[in-house]
């Protein structure tokens, strides 16, 4: 009887009915993923002696805020945080500038040697930093850039993946758009600013997020280039705090949680863009 279909279920309830087991499995899996982070938060408010209590007490007896305050007084975490921000923002900016320009160049121009240059840059993507860190370190030393912002930022200014990614994206732009701008008398730099940039907004934000995340967490390179407290970045500072004050687990958890917070906030605010950025890399790459 066509007219007498049952009252339509709300889509959410219908979806729930369709996948009850999957939902339970995913809930368990998510709990497993979150467990270390909840453990971290819980431990960060405890006394050192309460850390390994059996059974584990997820809600601490009392919230010891001191665990969060004391480490900040002992070590220059604020400075490390500022350093990380300066370095990650500058490197991301440089990455964007170089990758938009080079991506455009490799996608839409045909000067001699173009493919060779692109090939060289692309090839470095497959060579891990770890394989040439020794001469890179010596070079940065010879430039007098150890323990400087220049040393932390400039050598990381080019990102092979970002260039490749921008090239792939710009290639999809119709040539007519660029030619039309040229006929209108726009200079080449003008075209970059008023044609390429606006059309590449999604790709640029995707690269920005990716580069920022990479650089914020970068470890080996800053470990070698910044040996002085004043130039350390947060991950290096944290690792040094860990090896120097490692018995006080609650304090360690507290500073780790604090260090994690800014990225986590940025992530939650921009989570859609974050995830789409990564997804786009996969599909386009």
């Amino acid at each position: 009887m066509p007219g007498a279909s049952p009252r339509p279920q709300r889509p959410f309830v219908r979806r729930l009915r369709e996948h009850p087991l999957l939902l339970v499995a995913l809930l368990l899996q998510s709990a497993l993923v979150l467990l270390p982070l909840i453990y971290m938060l819980s431990t960060s408010f405890k006394l050192p002696v309460e850390v390994f209590e059996v059974p584990m007490r997820w809600i601490p007896r009392e919230l010891r805020i001191e665990n969060y305050v004391e480490p900040l007084q002992q070590r220059p975490f604020v400075r490390w945080f500022i350093n990380s921000t300066i370095v990650a923002v500058s490197v991301t900016f440089l990455n964007l500038v170089t990758s938009v320009l080079a991506g455009y160049s490799f996608a839409k121009f045909s000067y001699p040697g173009r493919n060779i240059l692109f090939g060289f840059i692309l090839a470095t993507f497959f060579i891990p930093l770890e394989a040439f860190i020794v001469p890179l370190f010596i070079l940065v030393r010879d430039l007098g850039w150890l323990n400087t912002y220049a040393g932390l930022i400039i050598p990381a200014g080019g990102n092979a993946f970002a260039i490749f990614f921008m090239r792939q994206n710009i290639m999809t732009l119709p040539n007519d758009l660029i030619e039309a701008a040229r006929i209108d008398g726009a200079s080449e730099p003008r075209i970059v600013l008023s044609v390429i940039l606006p059309l590449m907004r999604t790709a640029i934000s995707s690269i920005a997020i990716f580069c920022f995340m990479w650089n914020w967490n970068s470890f080996l390179y800053p470990l070698l280039v910044a040996t002085q407290d004043a130039y350390r970045t947060l991950p290096i500072g944290l690792a040094s705090f860990e090896s120097a004050y490692s018995t006080n687990y609650p304090q360690l958890m507290a500073v780790s949680f604090l260090a994690m917070l800014p990225v986590l906030i940025v992530f939650f605010v921009l989570q859609r863009q974050f995830i789409e950025a990564i997804a786009l890399q996969g599909v386009k790459g």
């Binding site: 500058s90 220049a150 400039i154």
Partner: peptide
Amino acid sequence: ALHLVAALT
């Protein structure tokens, strides 16, 4: 950006 970095250094 380079100027900025140079000035900072």
